[in-house]
Design a binder for these strands. Structure first.
Lengths: 335, 335
DNA sequence: CTGTTAGCGCGTTCAG
DNA sequence: CTGAACGCGCTAACAG
């Protein structure tokens, strides 16, 4: 491990003061050309790299933006993260990503960690209702929440209309003639999941169709649980001709259950997902689903953070959902 | 934006010196019980949160581990990242994840950035041959590379035997009776891809089968390219009964092309993937593929880093690949 | 134009 | 057991 080379080493080597070196590096103030050259050369020789922590300490800003995510390996969050990174391109800010995975640790709080790292702003990708903490942090630095509406923080929340999405998906199936539509709902403590389910119920009622409670099952937004739930449904005697899955991953799991029973999509059972993951376009059949503009949401989030950072106002725009019609739905048999 | 509360504020509030507060927080040295209580109370009241940057500056270690990834939204890297996070659980280290996405920026170098943040170690998830930089960084801090072998740094590289994986996959198809096997190879500048392809060729030769160059196509390890490549293959007159895709994502794309032609998997065409992404088990049919223990690789990587950090030696273990037999392969028609 | 000086917030001797 | 003083690496006045 080599010694830390500091400004002082460079200064000594070049025969100038540390202030001069600092000026050259940051482009602050005028410096004679010859010294500049000498310093640049010295930097090269010593292999100097500025200690950004020290810079942060004195300047008061770290040029970092903290990002909190539930699950870094989730394809859905991954897309938003990518959008955030792209939005940060060309700015002088860098993201610091921390995962709620850490929550398992006793009193570990992602937000605390970020604050102690003195991030200049925080982006929360999380539907966990840690409302208190979010509001608390927002008193110190700009905070933008993606994917959920936090009471008291509405203006800085980026989210889509999950209710409308659920409504759209269900209406599509109804329009095709389906009357017995399963809904694989997400976990109950997930506000997105509840909204989607509410949209489903509303669409049914609008069409004058009864909500059959035995067709609504709570899953966990993942393939495995959706598979199990669908298998149970298939084993029971309940009749259905279509499935509206809470998200695309659940749709995949459900389809495997159908496949195992020899049921074909969409001829025997129609399936609609939610999220429009990149992979869903390559599913067999390509999945009809509700599109969320994840990449763009990430970018807009960053834009909002940057606005707030430079003192401008920021009000999150509406993000519209839309149905992406692909090949996993068709009219029920005999229609 | 509230003022930064510092050690001094707490000290003043509690009527003690900053040194005492510091001792209490870090559990260094003995402090009388009454003062301890007073200080704890003061901390609470002022809402103090230690500035970890200042701590780093004086202690010389940041308790952070830099992680460089090519693409944070890739399901494959996502798994490894998750393993890394899990491995870090319970330690006092935190990951700082930076994406090569940033590479687009002029001279931005992820490694430089991490070094300037004074990370205590670096993990590289990347198959880009930035060898020079890696070796350079390794002179200052422990560096472990995942997924690629860096010449001159072999002991600290975690990777699987891609050659063997390609060999295994191909041999499996040959054993079933396939003689005309397409290989959707990854990009040529990707060492993993080249190794997998080499394994494919070797298996063919061992079986005394000719390598048909028109059956080997270079893709880019993603669905879209694999779809296009497979469609071209289908449109041409070349005959094949099986596909060995360079990774699971490519396998998905290829299968969509088959689906569009009304070809069934595995009855008409067998398909083998590589990686064993979590989603591949839910594909229809569930995908036969080469398993990589990604989560475990992430954990072992962390273990290695921690070992090196505490002065112990670390030699990366062998990671074995294995064929996961699912339902996307069977003997060719008429056999 | 350039060097000197004073902190940024904190851990750590070194004397009490 | 406790406080004063120094310094981590760097930038921002302040004088030359």
């Amino acid at each position: 491990m080599k010694e830390n080379v500091t400004l002082e080493h460079v200064a000594r080597k070049a025969g100038v003061s540390t202030a001069t070196v600092s000026r050259i590096i940051n482009g602050t103030g005028k410096v004679s050309e010859e010294r500049r050259q000498a310093v640049l050369k010295a930097i090269e020789e010593v292999g100097y790299s500025p200690n950004s922590l020290a810079q942060t300490l004195v300047k008061g800003q770290s040029m970092t933006i903290g990002v909190i995510t539930q699950d870094i390996s989730s394809p859905f969050y991954g897309r938003i993260l990518k959008g955030i990174e792209q939005g940060l391109q060309g700015t002088h800010y860098h993201p610091i990503i921390v995962s709620e995975e850490w929550r398992i640790d006793q009193h570990y709080q992602a937000i605390d960690h970020l604050m102690s790292r003195r991030v200049d702003a925080i982006i929360v990708l999380d539907s966990d209702p840690r409302t208190e903490q979010v509001l608390q942090a927002a008193r110190h630095v700009p905070v933008v929440v993606v994917g959920r509406e936090v009471p008291g923080h509405e203006k800085h929340c980026i989210y889509i209309d999950n209710f409308r999405g659920g409504h759209l998906a269900t209406k599509h199936l109804i329009a095709l003639g389906h009357q017995h539509i399963v809904h694989l709902a997400g976990p109950d403590d997930h506000i997105d999941a509840r909204d989607r389910e509410a949209g489903y119920r509303e669409a049914l009622q609008e069409a004058g169709l009864p909500v059959q409670e035995d067709l609504v099952v709570k899953g966990y937004f993942n393939e495995k649980d959706a598979l199990d739930a669908t298998e149970r449904l298939l084993a029971s005697e309940v009749h259905f001709t279509a499935i509206f899955a809470g998200n695309d991953q659940a749709a995949e799991g459900a389809q495997l259950a159908l496949y195992r029973q020899g049921l074909r999509v969409p001829q025997d059972v129609s399936v609609v997902g939610f999220d429009d993951l990149p992979s869903s376009a390559y599913s067999r059949p390509p999945l009809t689903t509700i599109h969320q503009p994840t990449l763009e949401m990430g970018k807009v989030t960053v834009q909002g953070v940057l606005d707030m950072l430079s003192g401008r106002e920021f009000v999150s725009p509406e993000f519209s959902v839309r149905l992406v019609l692909r090949e996993s739905t068709c009219p029920p048999r005999g229609k």
